[in-house]
Structure formats: structure tokens, C-alpha cells
Design a protein around this nucleic acid. Sequence first.
DNA 1: ATGATTGACTTAAACGTTTAAGCCTTTTAG
DNA 2: CTAAAAGGCTTAAACGTTTAAGTCAATCAT
Lengths: 331, 331
Amino acid sequence: MANSAYRNRPTLRDIAQIAGVTAATVSYVLNGKGSVSADVQKRVRQTAKDLGYRANYVAKATRTGQTLSIGLILPDLKNPFFPQLAQSVQSAARGAGYAVFLMDSQGDTEVEREGAEDFISRGVEGIVWCPATEHDSLSDYRADVPIVVVDRPLPHYDTISSDYYSGGGLLADHVLAQGHRHIGMIVGPQSLSSAQRRRDGFVERIAGKAEIDWEVENAFTIDLSDEIRRQLNNFDVSVIVCGNDFIAIGVIRALHELGRRVPKDVSVVGFDDIPWASFSIPALTTVRQPFSKLGQEAAALLVRRISGESGPLVNMSLEMRLVSRGSLNRL
Amino acid sequence: MANSAYRNRPTLRDIAQIAGVTAATVSYVLNGKGSVSADVQKRVRQTAKDLGYRANYVAKATRTGQTLSIGLILPDLKNPFFPQLAQSVQSAARGAGYAVFLMDSQGDTEVEREGAEDFISRGVEGIVWCPATEHDSLSDYRADVPIVVVDRPLPHYDTISSDYYSGGGLLADHVLAQGHRHIGMIVGPQSLSSAQRRRDGFVERIAGKAEIDWEVENAFTIDLSDEIRRQLNNFDVSVIVCGNDFIAIGVIRALHELGRRVPKDVSVVGFDDIPWASFSIPALTTVRQPFSKLGQEAAALLVRRISGESGPLVNMSLEMRLVSRGSLNRL
DNA sequence: ATGATTGACTTAAACGTTTAAGCCTTTTAG
DNA sequence: CTAAAAGGCTTAAACGTTTAAGTCAATCAT
């Protein structure tokens, strides 16, 4: 029986014995319930402090059924999107008295699913989940606890995302306002609705007001396809609109290698406003995701669901903001 | 009694009743202990599956004293150092059957400390801790569980860090090998031992072989002091050695504004190899921290301590590696 | 045929809490 | 002055497990 640390910490009973009362009384004192005389309260609190008593949440949970913990499942902390999300979820959860279990699925839906099951076994009262793909890897899994999905519009879940469509529109307005009339586009994988919505929001706002001379697809990474590298020699467009900041940084780098100056020769804009966006040279003009707010709202909604709020499925869309830096020129 | 979800999940007793045995027998079957006949085993497993039974770790923990969870306390997930650390700690912990509670202290030692107390109350069996400062904010706190400290050389703890001193030496060798003989240095806050060790490792290896024309201190951020901005107009040095990659990126950006080309006019080197280092233009020559290994080793050591391994305090130093990219010129 | 061993299960206690119910004693109301 | 209410504490059951100890029957060795 490897009963380390956890054991032989002072318990309610230990306090009770010393204070000359019952464990129940100690519990009432420490939880501010029941009615206990002032001097017993004082005695109990003092001995608790003397013994260095620390509540045992595990034991507590067996009785109350509440672990005051939630799970957070993310695809990949190395993607700069997620650290901020994790941070804000954790901080908001803490504000509500919840601790958070972290699980980085490394993009593996199987891991993701096992992670969820493990969390459930551990008694989490809810899960904030950003699925690795748009596929619902938990669909056949009866979770028993509320789940709030972040950044993916899965049906049958409460979801919280950025308003990509409007964000695309915002960017279009800005590009137009700066006088650009010939546009090259590198969109993200159109199988992802986040990529699709930001594209559509942009394209529909541009319609009739400017020309999209070419449009190609690329993964959401800094590495560009050969087709794109060729396209970058196209001198007809005055701005290259990228599906996200990674792509944009890749484009700036590729243009640099080709000897074309940004934004002097051609402007570049990104999407997301990841932390790196402001450090590139030139700094990226982009559209900011409310990373922290996403996490806050997700945690807040989850806590409400845990407390039993039962209204209809929530599909929250958070407003994006244009961030104008140096990579887009006024023509 | 807000006894949600957690309750009315099938229990051992439910299975037992249906399978016509005792809860104890079910426990034996599901844990592969004791001796149970083949057909009872089969019956139990089947009903467990039918009911969608899921072990209750909380109840389990009250009896065994093992929660199979650890805590991870970090100063700031937005610092690119930490996501990788978190990822690898989590993944290594999972490999050993442990789940991890995450706490981002946002640099606040008070939060850090309360986080630790909270973790203990939750029954974590150990803590991986990267303190917000070099101060031991847990010193007066009897933790009861093993703690492994990452990236800070606190006494009285098991610690795991990168070998900054050797890393500084590695960088010096490289700078010398590339023919540089006049060096400008922007070191990190010398109150931090990590900044100090990397500086000393560099300086001592340079001694007598090249000249350090100037040396100034700056915070570990991209924002540079005015003194440094002035120093960057100093044309005597052929390379600027920076305390970390943030500073290096700041320097590249400042030089760019001054119209000086990197590495043509002056070389720049960083330290850490944060993810952004490879995306800057030019890509940074730097010294890589074994981020993932730090996390792995920390988790592994913690698990060993949890299992009762009791040897002397461990102070592990992980090897660093030179990463040569474009920001350093051969003279 | 006997005693010992093994196999297959059950019993019951324990883990550290919470909390409804109970039981005195004192205070309050009429 | 008595009955009811309030105050202050204890008792005991419960939460879902694990596990040492017990029981009983069947098998084995001699």
C-alpha cells in the first residue's frame, strides 16, 4: 500500500479530538454552516491552523458529488492560438473556484477521446473542448457532463467562436479603404469552416469593388506550396490576403527572398493576430481574435451549465477587431 | 444538493446486483486481482460494458490514497517557453498514468502559492513547478508532496534546467569560429541566474580571444532601452550577442529601422530558440533549449519521487545545442 | 478416509468528508 | 408557569471504492 503524502495529513477527526468536539462540528465550523458557539468556533479554527489542516477535496467530493474541477482539451499548445486560450480558461475557472485538468491531444482524435473519458472518470464537472478536427470525436460517447466547444461549429454542442465572417468583412473594408483594387488570396484549407468563413466574409464584401486576381489554398502553416511561390512573382496584385498569420509570415519571408519589399512593392495582411504578428518585419496588419475572451466566455458558460442553467444551445460569436500595422500600404 | 452528473452513474454495486455477485467481486474482476471464475468474469465485464460503467477515480482515491494526478505551475503561458514545457509534462505524465492540473500564475507569487495549496487539497501526488521569480514562494509552506522545480536553481528542491553555462560557451565558440573579434552584448537581468549563467559561460570562453566592446543589460523582452538603441549605432562590433531570442528579435527590428542590414552589416545571435526564432528575417542563430526534454525529465523525476525513490536531491542540467541560421555572418 | 490446500466468492471495515436527524439545555412566548 | 422554539452539539449514515479476512465447497495428497 503505497499510501504516501496524501495519508496522515490531519483530518477533521484529528481537529475534533484535540478541540474536544465531534468531526461534524468541525465540519460545520469550517464550512460556516450549522450553529456553533463562538468559543468552540474559535477553538476549532485555532487547532485547525495549528495542525496545518487542509481540506481534502477528494473526500469532500465523494460526499457532495462536486469535484470543482473541469477539463480542458486542446489540439496543440505549440500553436500560439492555444496558450492564451488555456490561460484565460484556467484563470476564469479559478475565479469560479474550479481547477482545470489540461490535455494536449497533439491533434490525435483518439487521444482526445480517451482524454475525455479519463477526465470523466476523474469526476470533472464539465469540459472545455477545442476539437483537433471538425469531426466530433465524442459523438458516440455519452459524456454525462456539459461540454463547451471552442472555435468549431459542431452541432449539438454549446459553441464559442470568433466571428470569422465579420472579421473577413472588416479586413475587406480596410483593404478597400486603403485603395487596393487588385488582390491575391491565399486561403486556409476550405474543409475547415473557420478558413471558409473568413474567406467568404472577405470575398463577399469585396464583390464588385475590387478584383481578386488569383486565389489559392494553403495549409495554415508558414510553409508555402510551390504554386504559391510562383504566384508571388505575379506583379498585378497590390495586396496579398492570407488565411492566417502563419501564411502571411511565410509570404513576407518568401517575398523577401524574391527581393520584393513589403509593403512598398506589395502589401500583405494576415488573420488572427497571433503574438508573432507584431514582431515580424514589417509588423502584420491583421484581424484579431479575442483569444482571452474566448477562454473566459467558454469557462463562464461551462460554469453556468454546471450550475444547471438549461436554456437552448448557445452558439456565441465573438467580435473581431482590425489591427492596422505596417504590412499594408495606402495606395 | 446540486448533485449533478457525477451522481447516478452506474457503480460497482449496480454491476454487482445485475451480475448477481458482490461489489467486491466486481472490483476484483475490473482490477484483475483476486481469483474469480471465468464465467463470472465474463458476466461482470459484459454488464459493466452494457451499463457504460466508468471507474470513479475520486472514490478510488479515498480508499487508495492515490489520485494519479499532479500539478503544473507556470508563470505565463504566453511566454513561448512554457507551452512546450506544459505539453511535454502533460504527455509524459499521461504516459505514466497521471493527469495534470494546470495553473498559470501570471507571474504572481501569491497566486502561485495559493495554487499549490489548492493542488494539495485536491490530492495531487506531486508538483512540477516553474517559479515566477527566483524567490522560493513555497519555502514556508509544508507541501507534503514531492516538488520538481524547472529552470530555477532553488536550493532544497529537485531541479531540472538547461545547461546555460555550457550553452553560452557553445555560442562563444561559434562566434569565434566565424571570425568575429569585436562583440557587443545585451545580457538579460543579471539578478536571474539563468541570465547570469549564459552570460558567464559566454564571456569566460571569449576571454582573451576576442574583445567585448560593450555590454548592457535589458529585460528579457523585445523592447529595448534607449541606451541600447544608441549603442546599436556603434559600428565597431561585428556581432551583437543577445541574452535571449526576444532581445535578439528586438535588436534585428531596431537595426532594420536604423537601416543596418543583418547579417550583412552586423550579425545578431540569440538564446533559447523559441519557435519564433526560425521565422524572423533573417532566421536567428541561437542556442536551443531542450524544452520538451525539460518537461519529460521533470515529469519522469516527479513520478519516481512519487513512487518513493528517495536518493539525494537531483540537480539535472540538460545539454543545449547550437542552432546555426542566417543571422550570423562568417567574416 | 482424512486433513490440508486451493478456488471462488462474500463480509465488513475503511478512506475523510457532509448532513439530516436527534437530543439535551436554555431561552422565549403566552 | 408551562409549552414551544431556539441554540449547540452529537450520532450515524452515506458517497463509491478497495482489500484483508472469512466462509464454504471442491480438489488434492497421503
